[in-house]
Amino acid sequence: MSNYIIKPMQTESEMDGKGHVHYQSYQEAYTGLMDAEYLSSMSEKSVRKSPTNGRKTFWLLRMERK
């Protein structure tokens, strides 16, 4: 069984995880739909550097397995 927790993103690990998901989802979802030069200019490092995009609070859903 799994428990789900909705909470503010706080730790470096949570920010890195959000950055990874953001980067990977853009690469997979928009290849062939967006300009290839724009997608190739993105780097996972740059996305991870600013994971909240200027928001004060960014919420995340975390799954915990028992």
Rank of each mutant, 00 (worst) to 15 (best):
H22R: 09
H22V: 13
H22Y: 09
Y23Q: 02
Y23S: 04
Q24K: 01
Q24H: 00
Q24I: 02
S25Y: 01
S25L: 12
S25F: 01
S25E: 01
S25H: 01
S25W: 00
Y26R: 03
Y26W: 04
Y26V: 06
Q27K: 12
Q27I: 09
E28W: 00
E28H: 03
E28L: 05
A29H: 01
A29W: 00
A29K: 02
A29Q: 04
Y30I: 09
Y30D: 07
T31C: 14
G32P: 12
G32E: 09
G32H: 13
G32L: 15
G32F: 06
L33K: 08
L33F: 07
L33D: 08
L33S: 09
M34P: 02
M34V: 08
M34E: 07
M34W: 03
M34F: 07
D35M: 13
D35H: 06
D35E: 12
D35N: 11
A36R: 03
A36H: 03
E37R: 03
E37T: 07
E37Q: 04
E37V: 07
Y38I: 14
Y38P: 07
Y38E: 11
Y38D: 13
L39W: 02
L39M: 09
L39R: 01
L39K: 01
L39P: 01
S40H: 04
S40W: 00
S40A: 08
S40D: 08
S40E: 10
S40P: 01
S41N: 11
S41Y: 05
M42D: 10
M42N: 08
M42T: 06
S43Q: 11
S43M: 07
E44R: 05
E44F: 02
K45Q: 09
K45S: 10
K45I: 11
K45R: 05
S46N: 13
S46V: 10
S46H: 06
S46G: 11
V47R: 00
V47P: 00
V47I: 07
V47M: 08
R48W: 01
R48P: 03
R48M: 13
R48S: 09
K49G: 12
K49H: 14
S50F: 03
S50W: 02
S50D: 07
S50T: 10
S50V: 05
S50L: 05
S50Q: 06
P51M: 01
P51R: 00
P51I: 00
P51K: 00
P51A: 02
T52I: 11
T52A: 15
T52N: 14
T52F: 06
N53Y: 00
N53D: 09
G54S: 08
G54Q: 07
R55P: 04
R55I: 14
R55E: 15
R55D: 14
R55L: 15
R55H: 11
K56D: 15
K56C: 13
K56T: 15
K56W: 06
K56S: 15
T57C: 10
T57L: 10
F58T: 15
F58K: 15
W59F: 12
W59Q: 12
W59G: 11
W59P: 08
W59V: 14
